[in-house]
Design a binder for these strands. Structure first.
Lengths: 329, 329
DNA sequence: TTGTATGCGTTATCAG
DNA sequence: CTGATAACGCATACAA
């Protein structure tokens, strides 16, 4: 069936060892034999079996990637860059959609170990899992503390939260409400909320936060019902912000005149579908590359482990939901 | 380091074979020994090495998935369901973002073969590649003819195109323009265009199609410039439709009064961010499951190969960009 | 019911 | 510069 190294060797009239040598460019090989071998490989349409190779060298060049779902534009884009960059460095990606479910995440973790992945990159929105403390398995987290010694990458959540809140303030909002994920999840993303609270307190205003796991209409309706005088909303992600916008429209509350809204993430998808939404743009590509770099450093044993948190700068996008644009009525 | 089967055997006081037996539940095993072995596995925190297993059984339970990018909500959602369903059937997913580039796709194809994947699911938007005709490697295509004998799954593109066009017609549009991908790509998605043309011709109207690879503003501006009297647009995907909507707004063309717009895809993301957009919803989950089922059938040698095209029904969503909703002004 | 020996396809060691 | 041999971790045929 599939040709193996010994088949190539036979055709080329050399030993399997020699074939392996030209395959990996190791040791000295005569020009003539090299050519013979290459010809034989072409003739047989030979592809080396990475499974067998991995078994011997004890390295798979596989990395496991665990996030809630590729269906969400933010994770979809992050995973795209993760895979793309990893691929450019010779690594392949085993995809895991945990859906934020702890049971799924655990079983993925086991699956990845059985598959001998060289490392794992895992991301936000799931509850904490002790089992990430796997001896000799490099792990990098995104916006999530995985275990005591795993490094975590995030956008500058505090700075982002601060800038978003400050922007609403600067635009004249007098009652600003924040919408965020469950606070009991200990993630760096909570800093968005902390920053919001700090800024408000510095301005002698009362912080009010609504919690919702996903973009949940009910929570947002409740917010509008309970605070009809609210004139500024900082949502911790753009999907939530879009639902806010929608609900405001339903209630004939004009944006940005009566209500200013700012989100968080700034994916390409949102920038295309909802460019009027002000937001805090995360450096998604940068985050992905940092995560992969850090993981591979660990894999290569080149990580000294002294820095556990890595923070990448965000970019404030002041669009139409926070200010009237030139040319608009 | 990592415990192997023989380590477990030693601790349990049995032979490696016996351990393998309880691992795979094969043959007869004494209740007592089974317990001893299980205890030993727990004690050592043993996980079987799927790489070694794969090498022997010549099956990896790995499937390669090649699509342009998980960053696009449609593919992101499709890939989510693909992975999710495959996982439920014991298969793992190797992710490949081809970015619609032929060179990347080719190199992924080779990578997947080296990794001994059991099969490949590949999707739209790339040019045709002969190399998908790989002996003994099951392949399933989505919206794309991969090779003469590979089955292809699609939504009912003709019916979807027909319903979309008919809807615009029913709502009173008199000049309907279609925007689609490059026509030289031979994909089932071209049927959307064919249907559009058929419906228009049946109504003695002149079909006009603009081509654009991605949601390209320039093309859309040109469309508006060249056809200021256009009052209906059928875009072949929702991203394009959203750019159309945006451009119309810029030009103070009101929707749906002066211009009605309908897209295609109907992802969750679009339904959340742009619920006012009328669209033709693809059964994404159904497509994913059909693709995986068909692939596994091939892998198991249970596919008779008589049916090459599989078409899943679409759902017309008649929202605000084609009709005023109750309660709206 | 359990154990021994062999091979999956590759790479590395060590001779030649 | 090249070749024989062992080993990676597991599962199967065959013995016991």
């Amino acid at each position: 069936m599939k040709p193996k190294i010994s088949d190539v060797a036979k055709v080329a009239g050399v030993s399997p060892t020699t074939v392996s040598r030209v395959l990996n460019n190791r040791g000295y090989i005569g020009e003539e034999t090299r050519k013979k071998v290459n010809d034989a490989m072409k003739e047989l349409n030979y592809y080396p079996n990475d499974i067998a190779r991995s078994l011997y060298i004890k390295k798979t060049f596989l990395i496991g990637v665990i996030f809630p779902t590729t269906g969400n534009p933010f994770y979809g884009q992050l995973i795209f860059h993760l895979e793309n960059y990893a691929n450019s460095l010779g690594y392949k990606v085993l995809l895991c959609n945990s859906q934020g479910r702890e049971d799924k995440e655990k079983s993925y973790l086991h699956m990845l170990q059985r598959n001998q992945v060289d490392g794992i990159i895992a991301g936000a929105h799931n509850r904490g899992i002790e089992e990430y403390d796997i001896p000799n398995l490099p792990v990098v987290g995104f916006d999530r503390y995985l275990s005591k010694n795993t490094p975590v990458i995030s956008s500058d959540n505090y700075e982002g939260g601060k800038q978003a809140t400050q922007l609403l303030l600067d635009k004249g909002c007098s009652k600003i409400i924040h919408i965020n994920g469950p606070i009991d999840l200990e993630t760096p993303a909570n800093l968005r909320r902390t920053a919001y609270e700090d800024v408000l307190r510095d301005n002698n205003m009362l912080p009010i936060t609504y919690e919702t796991e996903w973009a949940n209409e009910e929570v947002i309706r409740r917010l509008f019902d309970e605070h009809p005088d609210c004139d500024g909303i900082f949502a911790s992600d753009d999907m939530i912000a879009s639902v806010v916008l929608r609900e405001a429209k339903k209630r004939k509350i004009s944006t940005p005149n009566q209500l200013k809204v700012i989100g968080y993430d700034g994916t390409e998808t949102i920038r295309t579908l909802l460019p009027e939404l002000s937001t805090v743009e995360q450096p998604i590509k940068g985050i992905a590359e940092k995560a992969v770099d850090l993981l591979i450093k660990q894999i290569d044993g080149a990580w000294n482990g002294d820095q556990l948190e890595y923070t990448l700068p965000v970019k404030l996008i002041d669009s139409e939901t926070t200010s009237l644009q030139k040319g608009e009525k």
